[in-house]
Design a protein around this nucleic acid. Structure first.
Lengths: 336, 336
DNA sequence: TTGAAAGCGGTACCAG
DNA sequence: CTGGTACCGCTTTCAA
């Protein structure tokens, strides 16, 4: 592999000058820079990240901690992060906790601390006290995207408010028999998110003076397949049938829609359904939803960290991401 | 940050010994190793990857090149890769080409060459001659997961054979009017995959002596939403309606099913549908499919590379991954 | 604007 | 089994 000294030799300047020239520092004459750049290109020289990382203390890499990589929210945030990093020529190190089985311990006690990254983004996780300590031990700037995490700033939607608004949409349509399909989850997913959404649902119900029923608080585990099953089970049981369903995510809402149709019922004639997310599938299924923009959340978080790394003013506060109501065919007035 | 010298000082041994002890080399006495390990833990010492990478020439990181991170196949392979890497304490550097808009150039001419990784896995991509050259310039072992790439070994299913078998399933049910919903794609996705699947479809049709119709070769771009649209368009057009559809992926097959139902038709009574993949959603939709196991493909590829990095015998040949036929309710005998 | 040289924090070879 | 010590390849003062 060609090293910086090869370029120096080929150009007839010192390696120090090559280093400066290639990084675009100002104190190199334009003709010199051009010569250097040209022979670097010819030789196919690219600086070793280990070497420059060691010497400069900056790796030009961002660490991203995800609970799993197979859920729409995470992958979409990831795309947003990646787009921003690519523009800044930063690399992305993916720390996947691998669901509930993967050992988080190793990630937090080793991987993250290896000084392979300059900053860290965590997607919507619950951290233990120990894990938060490890995060701060890295000494890098950290931000969470998604749910709020105690003691760490974050970018995310107002979970409780959006859940309330979704429920209120149903109430405004005249529904009173509203089931809540919650997203309780045993993964590393932030438990605070489903809890906040539950609260929002209750806020709306209480404000409207509608009693909630415990049989109508069911868990879809943030999965389409599981929601379909659990809603199907409810529909074929003796439990009184709701006239509307508010699901914590679009995937769960779609699972519910499938179950409803399989039972020979119609959406929205028999049961209205609303979700949260703005998932790609939502439009195909005509699902009414409160959309968020995970891509934008990811890039905003990244831009913020890159700014700090660039020495620009840090912002310690959390950022609230916007949501947008999208009315489709899955919700309609109650005719009961 | 604590460095190796801190541990050495705390333990009263040389840094050389600390280095050996912590890496588990054999030439350190057990009591010494324990003392060292203990104070390393107490001090929270973790070796800097830049420093050890520079000194040893190995980064303990694997690069993974993906065309995008938001498609089921890629994320599932990624999980497989990650599981294997985590077990080996390797980090994962994600090089996302970011669809057709993201500039691949930078990835291939810079990122990949920065010596941040010891080996490379590429997911199902078409490479230009130049890109393949860059890959080999890295000097590390490379393998492709998914479609075949000229000049590179790969792990993947026999695209053509599985497409043929899927089509043959429909033919065996008595269908002759079989539409092919192809996966042509303008992303970085391997163009050879949809082409091979098209061939497999044709193989089956020709072998059965059934003429193919050009109006029945339509493109779903590997997307559910787009397939739904294009199949919907076909059903409401004057074109003769097929009695069966073979889709290059489960997501496209599901899109087709949605379109069919929206047109008041039934699956499988009016139209049978079969896919390829074994997508999570397939079971929820009762889709008959040829399942593959991307997770296993990802971990197999990773294990292979790790073996080579460990000095064990390399294998230059490509590996054929298995598929499994899953019969569900979306296919039934033709009654025409 | 350029060059010389001292690290950055480990690894690995060579003695002892 | 352990310590000393050249590097690894680049960045970054400090002088020139």
């Amino acid at each position: 592999m060609t090293g910086i000294d090869d370029v120096a030799r080929a150009t007839g300047v010192s390696i120090a000058t090559v280093s400066r020239a290639l990084r675009g520092l100002s104190n190199v004459s334009e003709p010199t820079r051009e010569r250097i750049q040209r022979s670097a290109d010819e030789l196919g020289y690219v600086a070793s990240s280990s070497a420059s990382g060691l010497a400069s203390g900056r790796t030009r890499a961002m660490g991203v901690v995800v609970p799993s990589v197979s859920r729409w929210f995470y992958t979409t945030v990831l795309e947003g992060i990646d787009a921003e990093l690519r523009a800044a020529s930063y690399d992305l190190i993916l720390f996947n906790l691998g669901g509930m089985n993967g050992d988080r311990e190793r990630v937090f006690h080793r991987s993250i601390l290896r000084k392979r990254t300059d900053a860290l983004i965590a997607l919507c996780l619950d951290f233990t006290a120990d894990e938060r300590k490890q995060l701060s031990l890295t000494g890098h700037p950290v931000i969470v995207v998604g749910g709020p995490v105690r003691g760490l700033r974050h970018i995310g939607i107002d979970e409780r408010a959006v859940a309330r608004k979704a429920t209120e949409h149903l109430i405004a349509l005249g529904h009173r028999e509203i089931l809540h399909l919650g997203g309780e989850d045993d993964d590393g997913l932030n438990r605070r998110v489903p809890i906040a959404r539950r609260r929002g649902y209750e806020d709306a119900m209480i404000a409207a003076g509608i009693p909630t029923r415990s049989e109508w608080a069911i868990q879809g585990r943030f999965s389409l397949a599981h929601s379909r099953e659990v809603v199907g089970g409810l529909l074929s049981s003796a439990v009184r049938r709701p006239t509307a369903i508010f699901a914590d995510s679009d995937e769960m809402a779609i699972g519910a829609m499938l179950a409803i149709r399989e039972h020979g019922l119609s959406v929205p004639d028999d049961i209205s359904v609303i979700g949260i997310d703005g998932h790609d599938l939502a439009s195909s299924f005509g699902l009414t939803t409160f959309a968020q923009d995970p891509f934008a959340q990811g890039s905003a978080a990244t831009a913020l960290l890159l700014n700090e790394l660039g020495g620009r003013p840090a912002r310690a506060t959390s950022v609230r991401a916007p949501t947008r109501f999208i009315l489709r065919a899955s919700t309609a007035p109650s005719h009961s």
